[in-house]
Design a binder for these strands. Structure first.
Length: 862
DNA sequence: GCAAGGTC
């Protein structure tokens, strides 16, 4: 009975385990599959049922364009805004879809335990999609709502199952489609535009995204502030008094003045008086609050500013600590602990720690504090330690992060820091001054987090009305200074404040702008924008500043929130937002010259970049190799760019030329000790795969032995690139008349039947319009070349004399020669580009002497 | 080759 079976799906394996563990009281059996499956029996809605708990691993699907929109050269990015989109498995190797559909078989109830946020709601519907929910299956679908994976919350959620929220899921669908279309359209356009013009951009891709671009915007904004900063001199009056044997500098109420004459006047007034009268003494008890729970953003900020870890690395370390069971889940927005949080147990786990064990023991004996309230984002509890560890167990980096997590947690349950702040105020010559002292009463949490300690400063005793002689009066001259480059930690705060990215993705965006060569991380984890980063942002600022402002993200968020709340239709919102971005895109394209002017001033044109490397097959002039990213060749004459494999060292390959297009071959050596080398033709490498080749091979394969085209589908002997047209060259069919090599049919050239030698690149063009060409065992008595049989199908290519079948030597047969001339008025027997020994027919020796064959030319061009 | 969002 399907109704007696309940399948539950969580967002990740660890949550599935916790849920199963709680609901089965540890009495479950676990089976390995794509993700673990836990089985047990229990009661559901008052009935005895069989439970099965498994999980996905985050999103099952991700959104992309169909194959036809994947080609950058064929698709106009503008069309992407209206293009269809499809969902494909995000990680096909994990086989999550198959796993879910298999496990759901025969199960009449589904309980969704995905995280309780919009993304989780969206994954709910991905799961429903996978298990095949139709009217026939009649499955009952429930949503569990829980705020933490604790026994209390899990049991409460089981008793209060609801329905999944379609609107929230649709809001995520909307965001996915908008992000994809906007990001990909802008990225493709600006990448193609600028890479097609400049040689030293040093970026494989010039990406745009509604999160990464505003993130870069923050860094560049600070750079511009620094760059346009005008330092100003300022002055302040600094009187010194002698009290109880201490020399004390007093702070001026006016702080500083920017007019030296006025400052000098005040200095004189103060000097002339020479007596400081104590006008007021105040003493106030102040408190420095203990921290609230640690969330991801604060963890990343501390990791960057105090430990020197970049966000990417900090997350990696935190994840490892999490999977090893030392800390709780590290991706959370919440700074508030759930009400059920076991503080005593968490502290208890640390009492034997050699570093802070005794402090924790004292807290447990004297009583720990309830943490400050903080904010509960309803996702996961703050990051807390689980098991005690030592530096030896974790290694230095992990230890330092773990140490922080522990000390922070202990800090949250320690007393506040209490101190007394004393302020003495003075009057000298009608001007007011003060000095401040601080005395700590209770160290509280600052004894475990000493870097947050209150600075103690003793102040001598003063009495109100007391008159003290002023020792000297300095006029301090200072200079205003620009802010520093944006620190990573400041950037994280700005991103959080402006809603750019999430706890899980903030580190990814920062890493992105580094990897794209828009910013560089310098000493002290300061983010310094590169010329490329600066030029991009300045470009957006002069065409359409919206493109790099954080509002672009909040606009999208606000629009999809309408969908999430059921206030607007998903389709309408997506169309509306895309329509706006499409207009922005069109305007951007139209105005790109304004941005280009900035690029022109900063970067070198392709023609001035790179080093001469190999010959172009079209103009036979040397092309330049541009080795900065993306690695490519540029032909100055043809104004064409040929992309090369990235990450490899490129050299000329024995001055060989490609038999298909006459481009000089290159050899690419991949880095590393196991790096392989392979040869490639720059033209073939950049050509799309030949269309219609399947039919051609179909015909060739069906023929009897000896037919040209036999052995089709052999791997390329020149390079392993999957789209290289060399891979379409079939196995050898006859001996090369020029060398000891074999002539192979090059079906790519169809309808230009031709043969080329696999060794010397000798090329023979065969009669066009032939229906079928086959080799014969016969040899030509004149030149010993292979005799072939040419079948002109009457229907397709009727010849004047009505004959359809001819035989002849591939090299010297007059019959074929005249036959073709008769039909087309020109000879088709043209050897070309023979290397090494020259042709028997008296063609010039050496390379490049034959007539060029452009693979793009049609037969009629001959 | 491209976005941002989950998680590993």
């Amino acid at each position: 009975m399907a109704s007696n079976k309940v399948l539950m799906v969580a967002e990740k394996p660890s949550i599935a385990f916790s849920i199963a563990n709680v609901l089965s009281s540890g009495q479950m059996s676990t089976r390995k599959a794509s993700t673990d499956v836990h089985e047990f029996e229990g009661t559901f809605h008052g009935f005895h049922v069989q439970f099965k708990v498994t999980s996905v691993i985050g999103h099952v699907f991700s959104l992309d364009f169909p194959e036809t929109y994947q080609n950058w050269t064929v698709t106009d990015p503008l069309d992407l805004f209206q293009a269809p989109v499809r969902k494909a498995e995000a990680n096909p190797k994990a086989h999550i879809r198959r796993h879910l559909s298999q496990e759901a078989r025969g199960f009449g109830n589904l309980v969704l335990w995905l995280d309780c946020d919009r993304e989780g709601e969206n994954i709910c519907f991905e799961v429903i999609d996978c298990i095949g929910h139709t009217n026939e299956t009649k499955r009952k679908i429930y949503r569990a709502r829980f705020s933490s994976v604790t026994e209390k919350d899990i049991l409460k959620a089981m008793d209060n199952l609801v329905e999944p929220n379609k609107d929230e899921a649709l809001a995520v669908d909307a965001r996915q489609e908008i992000d994809l279309k906007v990001g990909v359209a802008f990225t493709r356009f600006q990448t193609s535009f600028f890479q097609g013009k400049y040689g030293n951009l040093d970026a494989r891709v010039i990406s745009y995204g509604p999160c990464q671009t505003p993130t870069l915007g923050f860094c560049v904004q600070r750079y511009l502030q620094i760059n346009t900063f005008k330092p100003e001199k300022f002055w302040s009056v600094r009187p010194y008094i002698l009290q109880s044997g201490y020399e004390l500098q007093l702070d001026w109420e006016r702080n500083k003045l920017f007019d030296v004459d006025v400052a000098v006047m005040f200095q004189k007034l103060v000097m002339e008086d020479g007596i400081a009268e104590v006008t007021e003494i105040s003493e106030k008890q102040e408190s420095k609050g203990r921290p609230s729970g640690l969330n991801t953003v604060n963890l990343l900020k501390i990791a960057s500013s105090a430990l020197g870890f970049g966000p990417q690395m900090a997350m990696q370390v935190a994840e490892r600590l999490y999977t090893q069971g030392f800390v709780s889940y590290p991706r959370t927005e919440s700074t508030a602990y759930p009400s059920s949080f076991d503080f005593r147990g968490t502290l208890g786990a640390q009492v034997n720690n050699p570093v802070w064990g005794s402090y924790v023991q004292r807290l447990l004996t004297d009583g720990y504090q309830k943490p400050r309230s903080g904010t509960d984002a309803g996702d996961h509890p703050p990051v807390t330690p689980l098991r005690s560890a030592t530096e030896d167990m974790l290694g230095n980096d992990a230890w330092r992060l773990y140490e922080y997590v522990c000390k922070h947690f202990i800090g949250t349950v320690s007393p506040d820091c209490k101190y007394v702040r004393t302020k003495a105020e003075f009057s000298i010559g009608g001007e007011f001054f003060h000095c401040v002292g601080q005395r700590v009463l209770v160290k509280g949490f600052t004894s475990i987090m000493p870097w947050l300690a209150v600075n103690e400063k003793n102040l001598p005793q003063f009495t109100k009305g007391e008159k003290i002689e002023v020792g000297r009066v300095d006029l301090h001259e200072g200079m205003t200074s620009p802010p520093e480059y944006l620190s990573e930690s400041e950037l994280i705060s700005l991103m959080e404040k402006n809603g750019i990215g999430t706890d899980a993705s903030i580190s990814v965006h920062i890493n992105n702008i580094c990897e794209r060569n828009y910013v560089q991380v310098q000493a002290g984890r300061k983010l310094v924008p590169t010329a490329l980063g600066i030029t991009l942002i300045r470009g957006y600022q002069c065409i359409d500043p919206d493109l790099c402002l954080p509002d672009i993200r909040s606009f999208i968020e606000q629009q999809i929130t309408l969908v999430a709340k059921g206030q607007a239709d998903h389709f309408c919102v997506v169309q509306h937002v895309l329509q706006q971005f499409r207009q922005k895109y069109s305007y951007f394209v139209k105005q790109i010259e304004n941005m280009d002017a900035l690029f022109e001033a900063q970067f070198s044109p392709l023609a001035d970049s790179g080093r001469v490397l190999s010959k172009c097959g079209k103009c036979l002039r040397y092309m330049k190799h541009i080795s900065t990213q993306p690695s490519r060749l540029y032909c100055n004459t043809c104004e064409e760019v040929y992309y090369l494999p990235q990450n490899g060292t490129i050299k000329l390959y024995k001055e060989l030329t490609c038999p298909l297009d006459n481009f000089e071959l290159l050899i690419c050596s991949m880095p590393g000790p196991d790096g392989k080398s392979f040869s490639l033709c720059p033209y073939c490498y950049n050509s799309p795969p030949f269309e219609g080749i399947d039919t051609l091979f179909g015909a060739a394969k069906s023929g009897s032995s000896g037919k040209l085209g036999k052995g089709a589908g052999m791997p390329c002997f020149l390079c392993p690139h999957p789209t290289c047209r060399h891979s379409l060259i079939s196995q050898g069919v006859c001996a090369c008349p020029e060398c000891s090599g074999t002539l192979v049919l090059d079906p790519v050239s169809a309808p230009k039947w031709r043969l080329c030698c696999n060794m010397c690149n000798f090329l023979v063009l065969l009669p066009q319009g032939a229906h079928q060409i086959s080799t014969t065992p016969e040899r030509c008595p004149e030149c010993d070349s292979t005799i072939i049989e040419v079948d002109f199908n009457k229907k397709t290519t009727p010849l004047e004399d009505g004959a359809t079948l001819y035989t002849g030597c591939i090299l010297c047969d007059e019959l074929l020669h005249s036959l073709v001339e008769m039909k087309y008025g020109k000879s088709f027997f043209r050897g070309s580009r023979g290397r090494g020994r020259g042709s028997r027919r008296g063609r010039g020796r050496g390379r490049g002497t034959g007539k060029m064959v452009d693979p793009k030319m049609s037969f009629r061009d001959f």
